[in-house]
């Protein structure tokens, strides 16, 4: 389905995850975050940048453990940044599919 984020039409699935990571722009991230009640800070952007880079490299969105191990943002901080479930929210804001892993 189509949704308007940051003044652009993007395709998302029924869980609200973007289906084409190439349509993503930082303005879209701001809009998706706003929808979840978040205001993005430089720390959020660090996580988002890591998720996008890692997903481009690995072909799948990183799980939380991977983010905390490799991005320099620890588990506690990730939960503070994305209180309503960092597992899904970080990927959604970064315009990536929902991660499959459980850790």
């Amino acid at each position: 389905m189509l949704r308007e984020y940051g003044g652009r039409q993007v395709t998302v699935n029924d869980e609200g995850f973007m289906t084409d990571a190439n349509q993503w722009t930082p303005a879209i991230a701001d809009a998706i975050a706003g929808e979840a009640g978040l205001t993005l800070t430089p720390e959020h952007w660090k996580v988002i940048a890591f998720c996008r880079e890692d997903a481009a490299r690995e072909g799948q969105p990183p799980g939380l453990r991977r983010i905390s191990k490799l991005s320099g943002v620890g588990t506690k901080e990730l939960y503070a940044l994305f209180p309503k479930g960092p597992g899904k929210l970080a990927a959604r804001v970064a315009g990536l599919p929902k991660p499959h892993g459980c850790v």
Partner: peptide
């Protein structure tokens, strides 16, 4: 442990 972690990751 894994179920609890998945719950936390989903905001539960």
């Amino acid at each position: 442990l894994i179920l609890a972690n998945a719950a936390r990751m989903s905001g539960i």
